[in-house]
């Protein structure tokens, strides 16, 4: 153990209507999540790392050794696919033993390794089951054991929890987190679920339109979104403006903020920070503007009101407030926002 694994790569895949070009470095023991909307290129990036998609440029170095010219079968990788792709004609044990056998283990040795891994994922008693006889969560764990049994230095996970129902997902996610903690190589995870990314990854890399738009620790990304996509994912209102001290000039409105900056900044605040009034409230030091209601929708226990006007924003209010304020699309309301609830940071 204690191997020092570092992936250093620039992944370029050019297609007629799409181009992926991202730099991706992963340290030993680190779990990186590629997060992004559908079609952003996250899965293409993962397949390029695996050698399943030819790169049109760039490089992949593993511990300083170039591997981008090697075919998939000669890269020191393990991969968990979205729908697992367990070989239907082999038992769970032989699925896991498949990799070790490919790497030269005898039949007996391969099965010994496989049994060990099935034990580690808690499926020793299902060794002889065919994939068709396993539940979704069990199949996911066999797929993980299969990928880890080849002792990869780079573990690739493509939407590993997407095929599971909400209930199973919690349990499997917790187990996966533990296995990732034990894994000493580099791990890259593709997902479009922000919660999954936050729970499983040490670092988020947000990919949109084939390029990296933001990266950092999950908490930093959640607090300081830099694109509308990320802001929506983490449930924040996000604006870009120019700061002059505690005042930020946006398009059509000026906001007072708690943080003082100078120059281009992002301003973010949660929908729960916005208060709504039927009539203009008097004597408040808060940011205040009149808005038009664009839509009203349930959002968990509260109701989310979509505001248009000088500032497009979401506001979360209680169901009681909806009735009391007679909030309906097309109506006019006053919106108030405390400066202390905003968050400004350099763009």
């Amino acid at each position: 153990m204690g191997r020092r694994v570092v992936i250093e790569s620039r992944l370029v895949v050019g297609r007629p209507a799409f181009r992926l070009d991202i730099g991706l470095d992963v340290a030993a023991g680190e779990v990186v999540a590629l997060l992004g909307p559908n079609g952003a290129g996250k899965t293409t990036a993962l397949r390029a790392l695996a050698g399943l998609v030819p790169m049109t440029g760039g490089h992949i170095r593993l511990d300083g050794e170039a591997i981008h010219d090697l075919p998939a079968e000669r890269r020191p990788i393990g991969m968990v696919f979205q729908d697992y792709l367990l070989f239907p004609h082999l038992s769970a044990l032989d699925n896991v033993a498949f990799g070790p056998r490919c790497h030269g283990a005898s039949r007996k040795e391969g099965r010994r390794i496989a049994r060990e891994w099935l034990e580690r994922v808690g499926l020793a008693e299902h060794a002889s089951a065919r994939p068709g006889e396993l539940s979704g969560g069990q199949a996911q764990r066999v797929a993980l054991a299969r990928a880890l049994a080849v002792r990869p230095r780079l573990l690739l996970l493509d939407e590993p929890l997407a095929a599971l129902d909400a209930h199973t997902r919690l349990d499997v996610r917790a187990r996966l987190r533990r296995h990732l903690d034990d894994f000493d190589g580099a791990a890259v995870l593709v997902t479009h679920d922000p919660l999954e990314a936050m729970v499983l990854a040490d670092r988020l890399v947000v990919v949109e339109g084939g390029v990296v738009v933001q990266q950092g620790p999950p908490s930093a990304v959640a607090r300081h979104p830099r694109t509308g996509y990320v802001a929506r994912l983490v449930g924040l209102n996000l604006y870009r403006g120019v700061a002059d001290g505690h005042v930020v000039r946006l398009e059509g409105i000026t906001l007072n903020t708690a943080d003082a900056h100078a120059g281009p900044v992002f301003v973010a605040f949660p929908p729960s920070a916005v208060a709504l009034y039927r009539h203009r409230p008097d004597g408040t030091p808060r940011n205040l503007w009149e808005a038009t209601i664009g839509g009203v929708e349930r959002h968990g226990d509260s109701v989310r009101v979509l505001l248009t006007g000088p500032l497009d924003a979401s506001a979360d209010v209680t169901s009681a407030a909806v009735a009391e304020l007679d909030l309906r699309p097309g109506g006019r309301v006053w919106a108030a926002l405390k400066a202390t609830e905003t968050h400004a940071y350099p763009a």
Binding site: I77, P88, A147
Partner: peptide, 25 residues
């Protein structure tokens, strides 16, 4: 064909993919 890709990521040569995965399937 993704089953064949899965086998490749596990280190199977193209011949091994054919004999151990494709053919049995």
């Amino acid at each position: 064909p993704r089953f064949e890709e899965a086998a490749a990521t596990l280190g199977a040569s193209r011949l091994r993919v054919f004999t151990r995965v494709t053919l049995p399937m």
